[in-house]
C-alpha cells in the first residue's frame, strides 16, 4: 500500500497549500510560452508536457536580479541591499532533470561564498517532481547517469499511476514530509500500480567522454573546430539550461544613483571573455563551445564531482542550428581511440 493523490483531488490540494501560506507554481502556457507560472487551479497546469520550454532555474536565479540600490553623495555612498522576498513556494510538476539541475548548482552557489539570493529561494521552496512516463527525441537523462524517475533535487516524488487516475506520492525530505502533512485527508492509501518510467535511450558513453575531456591533449584537438562550425554564438542553449549559472554584475543608473544588478551571462558570447585591452582569450566560437563542454563535463566535475548537465536536452531541442550537447558528446564518444 502506498499513498496516492488522485487528479480529481488536485484542486483541493492547491486550496490546502494556499491556506497553509504557499504559492504554487506549475508548468503552464502563457503568451505562447510554456514555463512555471503561479497557478490557481489544476486546469491551469500543463502537466502532460515532456518539459516546459523554460526551466525552474529562472525562479531561483532570475535572468536579472537587483542586488543593491546605491546613491553617491558628496562624502559618502548610501547603499541598500535588495533581498528577494521570503516566499513559501511549491513547484509542482517539476521534471526530474530540472529538479536535478537545482541540486547540481547548489554546491556552486555555496562553495566559497554562500549566495543568499540562491539559498533564500531554495530554502523556501518545495520541489514536487513528477516522474516521466514519456520522453521525446532530445531527452538524454540516462546518458548523464540520471533517469526519468530520478529523485535528485526533489522533496516529493509523484509517480503516475498505470490507470492514469493520479500519482503515487513519496516524500523524500523533511520539507517534503512537512508539505504532505498539510494534506493528510487528501491523500489516500492504495495498491494501484505505478506506470513504468519513460524509456530514454542512452546516447553516449559518459565515461569515455569525460576521460577524453580530461586528457590535456584534447584541448587543442581539431575536433572543436569541426563540431562547432555552424554555431552562431547565441545564448539559447545556456539560458535554457537548468544548470548554466554564469552571471555578470552591472550597474544601471546615472552618475549619482542606480541599481547594481546580477544578469545572466553566457560563455557563448564573444563579449564574455573580452578584456579591457581588447584582447579576447576565447576569440573564436570553437573555443567558446569547447569551454561550455569542458566546464560541464570536466572542470565542474573536477571541482564538485558531478557533471553540470541533467540531460534535459533543451540545448539541442531549441538550438537554431540543431547543435547541442548530445551531438558533441556522441561525437566525442565515437572518436577513434
Amino acid at each position: 500500500m502506498t499513498r496516492i493523490l488522485l487528479h480529481t483531488r488536485l484542486d483541493d490540494c492547491l486550496a490546502a497549500w494556499r491556506a497553509s501560506g504557499y504559492s504554487v507554481l506549475a508548468p503552464s502556457k502563457s503568451h505562447e510560452l510554456t514555463r512555471f507560472n503561479e497557478v490557481q487551479h489544476a486546469s491551469d497546469m500543463a502537466l502532460d508536457l515532456v518539459l516546459p520550454e523554460r526551466t525552474i532555474k529562472d525562479h531561483f536565479f532570475p535572468q536579472t536580479e537587483p542586488l543593491i540600490r546605491y546613491r553617491i553623495k558628496k562624502h559618502e555612498i548610501d547603499t541598500e541591499e535588495m533581498v528577494p522576498p521570503e516566499l513559501k513556494r511549491i513547484f509542482f510538476g517539476v521534471r526530474p532533470c530540472d529538479a536535478s539541475g537545482l541540486a547540481i548548482d547548489d554546491p556552486l552557489f555555496g562553495w566559497d561564498y554562500k549566495d543568499e539570493y540562491w539559498f533564500r529561494r531554495r530554502g523556501n521552496s518545495v520541489i514536487v517532481t513528477i516522474a516521466c512516463t514519456s520522453a521525446d527525441d532530445f531527452c538524454m537523462c540516462t546518458s548523464v547517469q540520471l533517469s526519468p524517475d530520478s529523485t535528485k533535487g526533489s522533496d516529493v516524488m509523484l509517480t503516475p499511476l498505470k490507470d492514469g487516475r493520479g500519482w503515487q506520492v513519496l516524500a523524500l525530505t523533511d520539507r517534503g514530509n512537512a508539505l504532505l502533512e498539510t494534506i493528510p485527508s487528501i491523500l489516500q492509501e492504495s495498491d494501484a500500480e505505478p506506470a513504468p518510467p519513460a524509456s530514454v535511450p542512452v546516447k553516449f558513453d559518459i565515461d569515455k567522454v569525460t576521460a577524453w575531456l580530461a586528457d590535456p591533449a584534447s584541448f587543442e584537438s581539431h575536433f572543436w573546430k569541426e563540431i562547432s562550425q555552424r554555431c552562431i554564438g547565441c545564448a539559447s542553449c545556456t539560458f535554457l539550461c537548468p544548470t548554466c549559472h554564469c552571471f555578470d554584475i552591472q550597474d544601471e543608473g546615472d552618475t549619482y544613483s542606480g541599481i547594481r544588478r546580477k544578469n545572466w551571462d553566457s560563455c557563448s558570447f564573444a563579449m564574455f571573455t573580452m578584456h579591457t585591452s581588447g584582447h579576447n582569450p576565447r576569440n573564436t566560437q570553437s573555443t567558446r563551445w569547447r569551454q561550455r563542454i569542458m566546464h560541464k563535463f570536466n572542470y565542474y566535475r573536477g571541482k564538485f564531482d558531478v557533471n553540470s548537465c541533467s540531460g534535459c536536452g533543451r540545448c539541442t531541442r531549441q538550438c537554431p542550428v540543431d547543435m547541442g550537447i548530445t551531438e558533441t558528446l556522441q561525437s566525442i564518444s565515437n572518436l577513434p581511440r
Binding site: H31, F239, P320
Partner: peptide
Amino acid sequence: NQQFSKCIKCYACRQV
C-alpha cells in the same frame, strides 16, 4: 509588453 517580457536576451534573433 507581454511578448517582450519573455525575452531573455539570448540574442538568438541577432546571431541567426
